[in-house]
Simulated assay, not measured.
Amino acid sequence: MNLSQEQWWEQYQNDTNAVILDVRTEEEVEEKSIPNAINIDIYKGQEFLDELEKLDKNKNYYVYCKAGGRSNQACLLMGQIGFENTFNLLGGITEWEGPVNE
C-alpha cells in the first residue's frame, strides 16, 4: 500500500507492530536515513530475498528508498512471499521531512 509522507509516519508512530525497512544501498544509507530502520539492499537480488525470509512476516513493514520506486517493488515482492502488511513511502527519503540520521 502506498502512503503519503504524513500518513506513513503517523501510522508508523501509532503501530506497536511496526518495522521500518530501508531498501537502498549501504552508501545511500550512510548519507541519510530514517532512525531505527533495518537496511536490506534490494539490488542484491537473491540475497535480498534471503534476508527478507529471516524477517517476521507478522509484523507491519514501513518500506522506503530514495524516491519510492525500489520500495514499491520491495512491497510487491514481500507480498508475493507472504508478508501481509507493507507500506510504501511515496516520494521516499528525497521528500522526507521527519527525523533522520545524518
Rank of each mutant, 00 (worst) to 15 (best):
G79D: 07
D41H: 11
T16V: 10
Q46L: 14
I93W: 00
Q80G: 08
V23L: 08
E6I: 05
N60Q: 09
C65Y: 09
A67H: 12
K57W: 00
I20F: 09
E97W: 00
K32W: 00
T86A: 07
G98D: 10
N101L: 11
L89W: 04
Q13I: 09
R70Y: 10
S71M: 10
N39K: 10
E10W: 06
L52D: 02
Q73V: 04
V23M: 10
C65N: 11
N2C: 08
K59V: 04
L55T: 02
Q5G: 00
V19Y: 05
S4H: 10
N39H: 07
G45K: 14
Q11S: 15
E84G: 13
T25N: 07
N58Y: 02
F83R: 05
N58L: 01
A74P: 04
P99Y: 04
T86S: 13
I20V: 15
M1I: 14
Q13L: 14
N36Y: 12
F87W: 12
I38D: 04
F48G: 06
C75G: 04
A67T: 14
N101W: 00
E84Y: 06
A37T: 07
S71N: 11
V63I: 15
I81E: 01
Q46K: 15
Y61V: 02
V100F: 02
L21V: 05
Q13K: 15
L76I: 13
E6K: 11
K32A: 00
N17Y: 07
N85T: 09
Q46C: 03
A74K: 09
W96D: 03
G69M: 11
S33W: 00
A67I: 10
K59F: 08
K57T: 01
A67K: 11
T16L: 09
D22I: 06
Y12W: 14
M1W: 11
S71P: 11
Y43L: 15
I34T: 06
N72G: 15
D50W: 01
Q5V: 01
E28I: 08
L90W: 00
T94D: 14
C75P: 04
F83Y: 09
M1F: 13
S33R: 14
G98W: 06
E27F: 11
N17L: 10
T16R: 12
D56F: 01
Q46H: 14
G69L: 12
E10H: 13
N39I: 04
I38V: 14
E97A: 02
N85D: 12
Q11L: 13
A74I: 02
K66A: 13
L55N: 02
M78Y: 04
E47T: 14
S4I: 08
I81G: 01
L3V: 08
D15S: 10
V63A: 05
L77F: 11
V19W: 03
Y61I: 02
V29P: 00
Y62V: 02
L76W: 01
A74T: 07
E84T: 13
